[in-house]
Design a protein around this nucleic acid. Structure first.
Length: 554
RNA sequence: GGUCCCGUCGUCUAGUGGCCUAGGACGUCGCCCUCUCAAGGCGGUAACGCCGGUUCGAAUCCGGUCGGGACUACCA
């Protein structure tokens, strides 16, 4: 393990690279009170954000904020082939929608650039090179010229002989290659990667503490993993492993909160930290959100599940607080039993996390959302609805703005401070049009055909008689007025059964029951057979509008 | 295949040797209320994966087994 000579190594790198010691000074430990945590969320820019990302980011942000620390966003774009340039805008929109704006990040992501930037890995390329060179100079990393074919062949032989897969031991053909062989390939212009010289011995165990899972032990890493990608790529970028070590150290992250899929890489990461002479870092591995798939479950996937993308929540207009409340409940079960406002204010605790991946339950989310919106005063419903509608339903936004008073009155129907059991008919802003649209004259189509199927197949003459009679004797709803009595009386006059019970006893004796009779009025006033309380709707609509609607048929 | 993680009602969970004939929430079913919905009230349904052991006593501790998941890339 005599390394390569210094001049050979240095010739591989730009001459103006900083030394590790300089970087230590440029990015000094943060001046924060004891106990303050520095956390980060590090997504790859491959399109829209995954809801699991919002989950992890929420946790990271919460841990930082509640400890008086810093939460930052770093973009992991070392895989230039998968880079999607729409990501920045989508991420930023998602952060802002879910209220998880970073303290520090590149400007495009909503945070303010701090002194630990840049916060995008491709812009940090020379930083990684400093450490790769340093590792090589100290014999802890080496160039590897193995081609894809050679690697495939090694893997095949390992499989055939039952050997453990990987690039290690005798299989690591470039690990101790003589210097002249390296020079020869270099001179020939062959492409190479840089591999970490793993100090791990086969069979050696290592253990560490995960902030969520507690004590965990693994076989130590023995693979000489690639830390710097191929020299024939347009840009010399590191793999995730090296980037993680360099960035999280230089950004002075105190606890790495990331997906569970990284758990088994921790032994490697610890070797890297040690080789790089970085201080220790803590880890918390969060289980992924799952989706029921037939008899088993799998990770919620952007490809297959619309609810995996944050775009879905934004488009549908799920209220942020409700989504946050749901997510926090999944993180710490204790919070799911608290009222929403309290649960949102309570700190998330890493050691209270469930270790198994929870199933994302959209039905439960709906319930939480409906509950939440039901507690909102009308003014606030409108205030939250409008920004959503401006983006997703401009016609609706225009109508609600123009007729704000109508919207406000509509939102007093069976809801509001004085109502014990408010209606829970809105789960997300996209529901508004369907549920409340009929209140707005401009969005309401008059029902003019007495044979309309919404009347349920009643004789057109009967429908017309009900309409005319209702209009003729119309009494406004008000205090002390039993508004529905006028419907009841008219219904009896026209021969309808006074109740479902009576009607069912002898269906032939009546054209229908009071339910069918009131449906006529309901359809005329609201356009549908299912609506909130008619008296309350009529009060919100006002006498003129009610009569205009009922008059559509006579 | 190997390594690791995980395993309580359909779902999220409470539960850390006796308070457990296993509690709550969502769902679901039934009833009540009722002019239709949305709600609301009341009630029901339903789980400790399995097998051994330790113990006076186990959902809780141990071993095994089965099942699920992650990783095993020059993707992150």
């Amino acid at each position: 393990m005599t390394g390569l000579s210094r001049d050979l190594i240095d010739a591989l790198f730009p001459a103006d690279l900083a030394e590790p010691a300089e970087l230590e000074q440029r990015y000094p430990p943060r001046d924060l009170p004891a106990g303050a945590e520095v956390t980060r969320f590090a997504p790859s820019p491959t399109g829209s954000l995954h809801i699991g990302g919002v989950f992890t980011a929420t946790v990271a942000l919460d841990v930082a904020r509640h400890s008086g620390g810093v939460y930052l966003v770093r973009i992991e774009d070392t895989d230039q082939a998968r880079f999607d340039e729409t990501s920045a805008a989508q991420f930023r929109a998602a952060f802002s929608y879910f209220g998880i704006t970073p303290d520090e990040s590149d400007e495009a992501y909503g945070g303010s650039p701090g002194r630990y930037g840049p916060y995008t890995q491709s812009a940090r390329a020379s930083l990684y090179l400093t450490y790769v060179r340093d590792l090589m100079r100290r014999g802890r990393a080496y160039p590897c010229f193995a081609t894809k074919d050679e690697l495939a062949e090694i893997a095949a032989r390992q499989k055939a002989t039952g050997a453990l897969p990987g690039y290690y031991g005798d299989w690591a053909i470039w690990r101790d290659a003589p210097e002249d062989q390296v020079r020869e390939r270099l001179a020939a212009g062959d492409a190479y990667v840089v591999r970490f010289r793993s100090p791990g011995l086969s069979g050696q165990r290592v253990s560490f503490t995960d902030e969520i899972r507690g004590e965990i032990s693994f076989d130590d890493n023995r693979n000489d993993v690639v830390i710097l990608k191929s020299s024939d790529l347009p840009r010399r970028l590191p793999t995730y492993h090296l980037a993680h070590a360099v960035d999280d150290h230089l950004m002075r992250i105190s606890v790495v909160i990331r997906g569970e899929e990284w758990l088994s890489s921790v032994p490697l990461h610890r070797q890297l930290f040690a080789a790089l002479e970085f201080g220790p870092i803590r880890y918390a591995h969060v289980a992924p959100l799952m989706k029921q798939d037939g008899g088993s479950r799998r990770k919620l996937s952007k490809r297959h599940d619309p609810e995996a993308s944050v775009g879905y929540y934004i488009e549908q207009g799920f209220p942020v607080e409700a989504v946050q409340y749901y997510l926090r409940g999944l993180a710490n079960g204790r919070l799911a039993d608290l009222p929403l406002r309290e649960a949102l204010a309570q700190p998330l605790r890493l050691d209270e996390f469930g270790v198994a991946g929870p199933l994302a339950d959209m039905v439960k989310l709906d319930d939480i959302c409906a509950d939440f919106i039901a507690t909102l005063p009308g003014e606030q419903v409108i205030e939250r609805l409008l920004p959503w509608a401006d983006e997703r339903d401009r016609d609706l936004a225009a109508v609600v703005r123009r007729e704000r008073d109508v919207a406000l009155r509509a939102l007093t129907v069976e809801r509001g401070d004085d109502v014990a059991n408010p209606r829970k008919d809105l789960r997300k802003w996209a529901d508004f049009r369907a549920v409340y649209g009929f209140f707005f004259p401009e969005m309401f189509t008059l029902v003019t055909d007495p044979a309309d199927e919404r009347f349920g197949g009643l004789e057109p003459e009967l429908v017309r008689a009900m309409a005319t009679g209702f209009a003729a004797g119309y009494v406004d709803p008000g205090p002390g007025v039993a508004w529905f009595d006028q419907v009841r009386a008219l219904s009896a006059e026209l021969g309808f059964a006074p109740s479902q019970k009576v009607y069912k006893k002898d269906p032939a004796a009546f054209p229908g029951s009071i339910a069918d009779a009131s449906a006529i009025v309901r359809v005329l006033i609201t356009g549908t057979r299912r609506s909130p309380d008619l008296a309350a709707v009529s009060a919100a609509l006002g006498r003129d509008e009610v009569l205009r609607r009922v008059g559509g048929i006579s």
